[in-house]
Design a protein around this nucleic acid. Structure first.
Lengths: 247, 247
DNA sequence: CGCCGATTTGAGAGCAGTCAAACTGAGTGG
DNA sequence: CCACTCAGTTTGACTGCTCTCAAATCGGCG
C-alpha cells in the first residue's frame, strides 16, 4: 500500500526500515476507494484529513461560476496533499479521481506520528511539500509563457518524470488516464486545439498518446521543445546527508 | 517592523501580546535592504533562510531559456516565503524586489522559535502557508481559464484584498509598483496587450492605474467581471477558536 | 533641455477559440 | 450478432483575441 510513497520519498533520502514500517502502518489505517470521475472532496468541504494517493490518478481542480474548469494539479500514486489543511474551515478547491483510486486519509494525529518518528521522515515530508509547491509554480509558468505545443510537451515531460520517480514507467511509456478534454482543462486551451496539438506532436515523432498510454519517442527533442528543466522536481537525492544506513 | 506580519496573521487568529513580542523580536534580528529591481535570491542559490517582506514589494519569478519571464507570485509586506526551503539544495526560482524593500531573513532556528512559542503561532503560520498555496492555485486558474480582461480584473481584486488585509489600502485605492511589462509577465499576455486591456478597464469605469496608484471605482462590477471569489484567501478569522484573550 | 524608461497607438499576422458535424470504438440490450 | 448509444476523437470553416513589430508620445529626472 505504501510502496509508492516510500519510493517517492526515497528520491530525497534513504529511509530506515523503521521509517518504512511506520509509514506502512499509518497509511493503511483508513483507506477509501473512489470510482472513476468521483469527487474525493468538494470545494467548500470542511477539511478533515490529509490525503495520500495509494493507487489511481486524481486531480485538484476549480470551477468558475460560468462552468469553466481548470485542473490545478495532478495527484499520482505516492502524492500527499492537504497536510495541515484542517487549520482551515473550508476547502477552496475540489479533488476528483480520474480513474478508480485508493486514497489514504491521514488525520492530524497520523501526520504528527509520522513527523515525530524521525527527523528523516520529517524532512522528507517537508521536501514533498516543497516539490508540490514548485510544481504549482512551474504550472503557472507553463500557462503563462508557453504556447499550446510547448505546454503539452512540458506536461508530458513532467508526468513522465514524476511517474518514473515512483516506478510507474517502462522506458518511454506510461499510463495517463486523461481524456483530451481533461488535458485541455489542464493546459488552458480548448479540447479541439489539444487534439490538433497532439497530432502535431505525433507528426513530429515526439510522442503518441493512444488509449490511455503515452509513449515518448524522442525525449531529448521533447525536452528541448518544452524547455523542460526538471530541477524543480528536486529528484536528485537532495537529502542524502540524512540517509539511513540500514535497509 | 513586524506590524504587517502581525496584522496579516490576525486575519486568522488574534495573537497574544507575548506572540507579538516574540514575532517582533525574531523578525528584527537580520534585516536586509534591497534596491528597486535587485534580486533578493537567484535561481540556483542554496536556500539559507526563510524570507519575510517587512516593507516594499517583491516577486517570485522564473525565466525560460529563451528569456521569457513569468512572475509566479507577489510578495507584499507581511508575506513570508521559503519556510523549510533549507531542506533543498538549490532554489528553483528567483525572488526580486520591485521597489526598495526590507526583508527579514529567518534561519531555521528562528522559525523553530516562532513555531514552538505557541500553538496559536504555529497554526497561524500553517494558515499563512496554506493561503500562499491557494493563491498559487488560483493564479493557475487565472492563467488557464480567463481571458486578458478577466485576468487583469482578477489580479487587481486579489491585490486589493491582500493589501487591505495588511492595512495598505485607503478605500478603493492602493499603491502597486508595477510597470505594464511586469503586469504582462504576471498575467501571461504581452505588454502591448496589457496596455490596451487597462484602457478597456478604465473605459468601463472599473479601475484607473496611473503612476503606481491603483484606484478601483466599482468593486462590484470588477468582481463580477473577474469572477473573483475571495474564499481562497481565507481572510475570515478562520482560526478564531484559538483567539488570545489578552491584547 | 535632453535622455531614457514607460506608455500609447497602428497595422498586419497568426495562434487558438467556437460551432458543427462526422467518425470511432467500447459497451448495452434486443 | 446486430442495432443503438454515448463518450471521446477528429475534421472543417470561420472568427477573433492576442502577438509582433514599429513608431510615436509621455513623463520624470539629472
Amino acid at each position: 500500500m505504501s510502496e509508492y510513497l516510500i519510493r517517492k520519498l526515497e528520491n530525497y533520502v534513504r529511509l530506515s526500515a523503521s521509517d518504512k514500517r511506520l509509514l506502512h502502518e499509518v497509511v493503511t489505517r483508513d483507506v477509501k476507494s473512489y470510482g472513476q470521475r468521483h469527487d474525493i472532496v468538494h470545494e467548500g468541504d470542511r477539511p478533515r484529513s490529509a490525503n495520500l494517493i495509494l493507487s489511481g490518478f486524481a486531480t485538484r481542480y476549480k470551477i468558475l461560476e460560468d462552468g469553466r474548469r481548470q485542473i490545478v494539479a495532478f495527484m499520482i500514486p505516492g502524492d500527499i496533499c492537504d497536510l495541515r489543511m484542517t487549520v482551515l474551515r473550508k476547502r477552496d478547491h475540489a479533488m476528483g479521481a480520474l480513474m478508480p483510486s485508493k486514497v489514504a486519509q491521514l488525520t492530524d494525529a497520523d501526520v504528527q506520528e509520522i513527523l515525530g518518528h524521525s527527523a528523516r521522515l520529517e524532512r522528507a515530508l517537508a521536501w514533498n511539500s516543497l516539490v508540490d509547491e514548485a510544481i504549482s509554480l512551474e504550472w503557472t509558468v507553463n500557462l503563462g509563457r508557453r504556447d499550446a505545443l510547448e505546454r503539452l510537451a512540458h506536461l508530458f515531460c513532467e508526468l513522465h518524470c514524476r511517474l518514473r520517480a515512483v516506478g510507474l514507467t517502462t522506458e518511454g511509456r506510461c499510463e495517463v488516464p486523461l481524456t483530451q478534454t481533461e488535458i485541455a482543462d489542464t493546459v488552458g486551451v480548448s479540447d479541439v486545439h489539444v487534439n490538433r496539438t497532439l497530432m502535431e506532436l505525433r507528426g513530429r515523432g515526439l510522442i503518441t498518446l493512444q488509449g490511455k498510454s503515452l509513449t515518448i519517442h524522442d525525449m531529448d527533442r521533447l525536452r528541448e521543445l518544452a524547455m523542460f528543466n526538471p530541477n524543480y522536481l528536486h529528484l536528485g537525492q537532495e537529502g542524502r546527508e540524512l540517509d539511513a544506513t540500514d535497509f
